[in-house]
Simulated assay, not measured.
Amino acid sequence: MAMKTDQIKLPVSVATEIVNKAKDTSTIASLSPSTPQIFSDADYLVFNGKSEAEVVAEGAVKSSYEQTVDSVVAKRFKVQTTTRVTSELQWADEDNQLQIIRSIQADQAAALGRALDYVIYHAINPKTGAVLSGFESLSTSAMQVTAGDDDISNVDALADALNDSYDINGVALSKTWASRLRKLRVPSTGMRFYPEIPLNLQAGSLDGITAATSGTVNGRLATTPTKVLAFMGDFSLIKWGMVRDLTSEIIAYGDPDQTGVDLKAHNQIAYRTEAMYAFAVIDPHAFAVLKTK
């Protein structure tokens, strides 16, 4: 007997609403341009020019100086995010289905971007909030500045920690500190001291240098508070890039994230996005980190 399909009712359409909450972004991606990377281990040869001109008397012996060339090895790490959704999504009409899939992939791509900050700034796995072994965090190797009660002085203290030896081209702000700076006012006029910081805290600059704001700066997902308020320094000395570009796949069977829940048995499908990063901080002392007491 042929199977009848007239009694099976499938949804004609699915009404979709995408909730756009404020998303953290990668400040390193904003302040430091990416460069192509290869899978093999990469060494960055670091040359610190030390020469100064010498005034030499006529007939006098000319002196020299020893120049050393250091090397910094780039580290690689793989990141992935897997999102499970009901398989009923496949019943949706094409327009609604694509809207949800694109939102899932955009959400996953943003998560992979944030992972760059978590690993370089804090050596933290953003999914678990735990410290990663084998990685050194910039928050511990950079020049340490302890925040005082005066945030204008805190900005100056960050710059003073670097200006004598390094050029400053960027500052990464936590949302906590960006909010505090936005509220500062000039006593005599009531004007905002840093008017370049808008209500959404996404400052493009701070006191004349390029700025970026994100919850990744203080590591909001860390299980142990980092106490970080900001990073300032020469962001061109963070070398990073993707060894392998973002790849996405649809998984229809099995238990891809080892949760003990089979996809098919629970009418689910999974979308997975992966990438491979490589990065090197050429000189951690080219950065200053501001931390609370």
Rank of each mutant, 00 (worst) to 15 (best):
L162V: 06
L206I: 10
R185H: 07
R180L: 09
Y194N: 03
D150Q: 02
I101A: 15
A178L: 10
N154G: 08
Y121F: 15
M191A: 14
I104G: 03
P195M: 00
L173M: 08
L206Y: 09
T128G: 13
S139H: 12
K175N: 14
Y194W: 05
S141N: 03
A106P: 03
D151S: 13
A159T: 11
Y194R: 07
G170A: 11
S188I: 00
Q202L: 02
H122M: 12
N154Y: 08
L162W: 04
S174K: 09
G129H: 08
D117E: 09
H122W: 14
A159Q: 09
Q105T: 14
L116Y: 06
L138F: 05
Y194L: 02
G134R: 07
I168Y: 12
L184Q: 05
D167E: 08
E196F: 06
Q108K: 00
K183L: 13
G204Y: 01
T146D: 06
Y121S: 01
R114W: 05
I120Y: 11
T176K: 12
S165T: 11
T128P: 10
L181H: 00
K127V: 13
S133C: 04
A123F: 10
A109Y: 14
K183C: 04
I152Q: 10
D156E: 14
K127G: 11
A109N: 11
A111Y: 15
T176H: 06
A161I: 10
A115S: 15
R182Q: 15
I120G: 06
G204V: 00
T176F: 10
G170K: 09
I197Y: 02
S153P: 01
R192P: 08
S139M: 12
